[in-house]
């Protein structure tokens, strides 16, 4: 994981969770709840990604008063990076959706 662009799904979910201040395992549970358990992040992956995001200054330590539950949050650069990746993902989704719609229209005509 040298560069963060494009973001991997795990990095994307973690950054999306850190639009508000959260500690590591709040991120884990939010992702698990939101995806109905279909996407889960392992603890070593979560720790590795948080450390990398800190190093790249995409997130900052927001509150370290509880050493077991350090709270992180996106930086401005982090928000921009996330927005850029949302745009990238939207292109993918729109292309697929339009393709499927066209197919449905064709099917109805015949």
């Amino acid at each position: 994981m040298k560069s963060f662009e494009p973001l991997t799904d795990s990095v994307f979910y973690i950054m999306a969770s850190l639009t508000e201040p959260r500690h590591g395992y709040a991120v884990m549970s939010l992702v698990e709840e939101t995806t109905g358990g279909s996407f889960v992040i392992g603890p070593a992956s979560l720790y590795t990604i948080i450390k990398k995001l800190l190093k790249e200054q995409l997130i900052v330590l927001h509150d370290e008063s509880d050493s077991r539950r350090k709270v992180y949050m996106l930086t401005d650069v982090g928000r921009q990076t996330l927005e850029a990746d949302i745009a990238r993902r939207k292109v993918m989704i729109e292309m697929a959706e339009k393709g499927l719609e066209r197919r449905e229209v064709c099917d109805e005509e015949h």
Binding site: S10, G42, P43, T48
Partner: peptide, 14 residues
Amino acid sequence: TVPIYSDPESAQDK
């Protein structure tokens, strides 16, 4: 249990 490394990129870092 979910593996400690759930994605290949972080596993590579390991």
